[in-house]
Design a binder for these strands. Structure first.
Lengths: 146, 146
DNA sequence: TTTGTTGCAAAAAATTTGCATTTGG
DNA sequence: CCAAATGCAAATTTTTTGCAACAAA
């Protein structure tokens, strides 16, 4: 559970308070590899009888992003979706506009490009989002009309 | 004004109706290179005394995306921002998390990677979004405290 | 003890929808 | 003519905020 420790250190380092609610949130997020949105996370916690208000989740997310433990992955159905990143290899997402399926794939070259651009423009790049949009093989077939 | 024609053909091709409102919207979007969100577009039109309801803008955006004339570029301040793409070279965005500044930069390799992944996984990739997040030189300097 | 945090409920912001009316083709 | 689109206002959905009670350090 080193992400829990990491989050606690981050919170304490900022002079903030590490509360039971914050621990429930970080623990739940790292309990599966699934992407999540605020509502899903709220429900996952609730199903396990962990009562954390949505307001607290909304207030905790910016801290999780700042700490580098999660990141926004895509915007869909009117809201953002996140995934945890600590301890995971960077990867990219393909999103099917037909069925909504998300496929993750590794891409080391992206990291290389990130570093290069970073240097060339003098940005302190902390993360990237590389998303491919289109149609998966199944949906591509069904879209093949005139 | 070939994007106007393109949009008209797209709309008619779907058996839909090319209305004055739709023409105002597409014309306004292509009148500058600026990114936009729904509210900004609505205000830009209003300032020119072009009355188009926000509902119509919301209803037109999916058509513009489907036609390949605009795309979502980033989510910020609780809502999506778009840019027109027809006739423009693909490019990527760096977004400063300090000041919110957006810097566009070309990257041909991204297109190459897109095509390669496309082939490798059998996706029909129609577009990509490559965003770098971090701090611009100015903000990077200011963040440099313990 | 001192502040930051919580939950709640209200408010704000963003988007969608129902419907009467208008209009493109 | 008639199915589709519009504007408006109401409804929905998502996110933020004010505040009293609570609790971490």
């Amino acid at each position: 559970m080193s992400e829990v420790k990491r989050f606690r250190e981050f919170i304490r380092g900022k002079g903030l308070r590490y509360t039971p609610e914050r621990e429930l949130i970080i623990t739940e997020i790292f309990s599966t590899h699934d992407h999540f949105d605020v509502d899903e996370l709220y429900l996952r916690l609730r199903r396990k009888n962990k009562r954390v208000s949505k307001a607290s989740i909304y207030r905790t997310i910016p801290l999780l992003i700042e700490s580098g433990l999660i990141k926004e992955v895509y915007f869909e159905n009117g809201h953002l979706h996140y995934e945890h990143i600590y301890g995971h290899k960077q990867h990219c997402h393909f999103r099917c506009m037909g069925c909504g399926k998300i496929v993750e794939f590794p891409d080391d070259e992206i990291v290389r490009i990130q570093n290069e651009i970073s240097k060339r423009y003098g940005f302190a790049v902390t993360s990237h989002r590389f998303e491919l949009l289109g149609y998966c093989p199944v949906c591509a077939r069904n879209e093949n009309g005139p």
